[in-house]
Design a protein around this nucleic acid. Structure first.
Lengths: 229, 229
DNA sequence: CGCGGCGTTGACCACTCTCAAATTTGGTGG
DNA sequence: CCACCAAATTTGAGAGTGGTCAACGCCGCG
């Protein structure tokens, strides 16, 4: 972990890229920025621990982070975060223990905002609180859909649907983490994930090249997603 | 569905039992109450639908409700709510579509509060918003732990841990829904759930009598929960 | 250059799901 | 109050899937 020097303007620009702060008063923004720090974290460095109390809000400026839950005999990935985004906004604001831990997937640039400053601002700005509730709702939606897909269907189906989601309208997909972590996120063992990719590859649906893949035939993916008819 | 007549005092008392409204100003409370209605819903009646827009906040005054997600080929239970509690507070306040549907497990008494009134109140009362964020955080915590347990371990383990959680310090447990719905909540088929209970019964860990059960030996449940050593 | 972790593949197996049928429960209508 | 029907629950048997264990190649890092 290394602390960087950065001008206020740079920090402010980073915050502006986040929906939560995009429409903030210039004065309020400046206040947030003036006490914040920019840091560089190494791969596999842990940003916060499940159960510990938050003391600052972390904004992921560059890099990707995995959010994991400690379970008997290992860790389960419940979220893969890519910059730019905030980490654990709600627990930090409420001062409640982190429900999960966060680990860098690669060298990451983070901005740390003292909890007190965020709290003061939130007490003043109802719209900010409402946006926070919105963000919380998004997270809830994400988790429920994740929960729904876990119980359901085979590994192939989950992998296919995940790839379709990642691809969006394009054809090139970059996995947001190592395969073993994506596997965990999907509720699979690395072996099962690898096998699922192998099947899709053998059917001509995708090409795989390390963490990058290309969607060759959406219809095959869609069919794997809905093996019922 | 039948609308009931009720005095303001009765309605106010119902709201006071909810953490969200427990410390509300008497004046604000009265305002909420005056436009609200008390209703009786039948078993299997649907309170709201996944994807539709909320128009009122529902407070479950009596009975139990299951919150389900529509998935290909059926429904998955993601939450079992028992009175007294609120349903979908955050989506209602934000005016966003419901992320899931709600169905009565039995005849239920509900109180319906117009969305506009809640919204007006929330804009005025920062503490109410903060309590809402807290509630949202609780829900998040619940979903994540649910998610973590789903991928993990065998059916026995999940059932045992669920029963221990329900039992708390006591020995008598009442399932908050029909077994098939509890099974779905735990990510199991009804058959698998039934078998798990049968095993625990044959080991002398529990007694089963319809929806009521008694914990005879916590240590056996705890051992089933952690088959590793 | 060598070590260690990741990714892949194969073999095996425990587990849960599926399908089917018997039994019980609960509710309805006569 | 009783008979009946539908749904829930239980039990059984079997098939399929993903987990586990093990071995191997590869890449990145020290």
């Amino acid at each position: 972990m290394k602390t960087l020097q950065a001008r206020e303007g740079v920090l402010a620009r980073h915050l502006r890229r986040l929906p939560l702060f995009a429409e903030l008063d210039a004065a309020d923004l400046k206040e947030l920025v003036c006490c914040s720090m920019l840091r560089l974290h190494d791969r596999d460095e842990r940003l916060f621990e499940q159960g510990s109390a938050p003391c600052e809000l972390l904004a992921l400026v560059d890099g990707t982070v995995r959010v994991v839950l400690s379970v008997s005999g290992g860790e389960k990935v419940i979220h893969l975060a890519s910059a730019p985004c905030l980490l654990a906004e709600v627990p930090v604001l409420m001062g409640r223990p982190f429900p999960a831990s966060a680990v860098c997937n690669e060298p990451c640039t983070l901005m740390a905002i003292p909890r007190q400053d965020l709290r003061d601002l939130a007490r003043r700005d109802v719209d900010l609180l409402l946006r926070l509730l919105g963000a919380s709702l998004e997270r809830l939606r994400e988790l429920t859909s994740s929960l729904a897909s876990h119980g359901q269907r085979g590994a192939l189906s989950r992998v296919a649907s995940y790839l379709l989601g990642l691809a969006g309208s394009g054809a090139l997909v970059e996995l947001p983490a190592a395969k073993k972590d994506v596997a965990s996120y999907l509720g699979l063992t690395p072996e099962a994930f690898s096998r699922a990719l192998a099947v899709l590859r053998s059917e001509g649906a995708i090409e795989v090249e390390g963490q990058r893949l290309r969607v060759l035939d959406r219809s095959i993916l869609a069919r794997a997603f809905e093996p019922e008819a």
